[in-house]
């Protein structure tokens, strides 16, 4: 507390209380992670492959988040972008939008950063197993869902039909180009892509992601995962409603200002839910009656 205490208590002799030591970890103490690979995938996004500096395994579920940061800059919540089935390393994708993300995106292989987590609730895999799965991802929404995509591909037999709909504003905004190239050829995943605005390099679908539903028949028993910008949710949910997909079978991966990541600081609240600990993955049935949800 030294120096920052308005009440003057900090100016008094600090007497550490032995009884309160070692009772639990400091929730805000981060772990160091080394950057093994850093690739600028779009003008704004950088894809990092990381490993904990102490070589230990990061145990997590697809859909969980990390607080990623650099001391002196701050922390930002980032969804894990690789599957826990791929051991030893983990991936994140950071879009340069503010002070912390811009600083993180200057890092290259050989540098290191700090992480806290995994935090929050990921996808309930037991509810997805044995089902047809549809993932609808918009823009950077492909990053947290890539964790689930890889998971399903790595344990393909545990799931039935697997469809991915991916929409971006422009072709140059597409992420994970190597993955996309592989998925286009793969028989394990039905990939449908679209862009809002085409350019001369683009020969595929043009239009918002909901337009893809006109081309792809979806069974009402399908479990659906939606992740993208807030505006996208509204349109996708109404299409899913028209397909008679029950709302408890729709999962949304929400974005809010998850500052502390441990359910205290209050910034990510939707009504009485804390996105960082109650989510970021919710079934749509859980959040549809929350007035502050999208």
């Amino acid at each position: 507390m030294k120096g920052y205490c308005a009440c003057g208590v900090a100016d008094m002799a600090v007497k550490p209380d032995p009884g309160s030591k070692d009772k639990g970890p400091n929730l805000f103490l981060p772990r160091k992670a080394d950057v093994l690979r850093a690739e600028q995938t779009t003008p704004y996004e950088k894809h990092f492959t990381l490993r904990l500096a102490d070589q230990s395994q990061l145990e997590f579920q697809p859909g969980q988040i990390l607080e990623v940061g650099l001391m002196g800059f701050g922390e930002i919540p980032i969804g894990l972008a690789s599957s826990p089935t791929r051991k030893n390393t983990f991936d994140i994708v950071v879009r340069s939008v503010g002070r912390v993300s811009t600083a993180v995106n200057k890092l290259e292989a050989g540098d290191s950063l700090l992480v806290r987590g995994p935090l929050g609730n990921g996808f309930d895999l037991d509810k997805l197993r044995g089902r047809d799965i549809l993932i609808v991802a918009g823009g950077i929404g492909l990053c947290p869902t890539r964790s689930l995509i890889q998971y399903i591909l790595d344990r393909r037999k545990e799931f039935k039909r697997f469809i991915l709909m991916y929409g971006t504003r422009e072709p140059k905004m597409q992420l994970f180009l190597d993955d996309l190239a592989e998925w286009r050829k793969s028989k394990d995943i039905e990939l449908h892509e679209t862009v809002d605005r085409a350019d001369p390099t683009w020969a595929g679908n043009v239009g918002v992601v909901t337009k893809l539903f006109n081309k792809v028949p979806i069974d009402p028993e399908t479990r659906v995962v939606v992740c993208g910008p807030p505006i996208m949710f509204r349109y996708v949910i109404s299409v899913l409603d028209s397909l008679w997909i029950p709302r408890e079978n729709i999962y949304v991966d929400l974005e809010r200002r998850m500052k502390c990541g441990v359910g205290k600081c209050g910034h990510c609240q939707i009504n009485d839910k804390y996105v960082c600990v109650d989510g970021p993955v919710f079934s749509f049935a859980e959040v549809e009656n929350l007035e502050e949800a999208p």
């Binding site: 507390m1 920052y4 308005a6 009440c7 208590v9 008094m12 600090v14 400091n26 805000f28 002196g72």
Partner: peptide
């Protein structure tokens, strides 16, 4: 829970927690 409370301190690469309760 003071108006400003240090959670973590850093010095170069060194990062450490700073929970230093005052028995008052």
């Amino acid at each position: 829970f003071p108006p400003a409370q240090d959670l973590v301190r850093f010095d170069g690469d060194k990062v450490e927690g700073c929970i230093e309760p005052v028995a008052m």
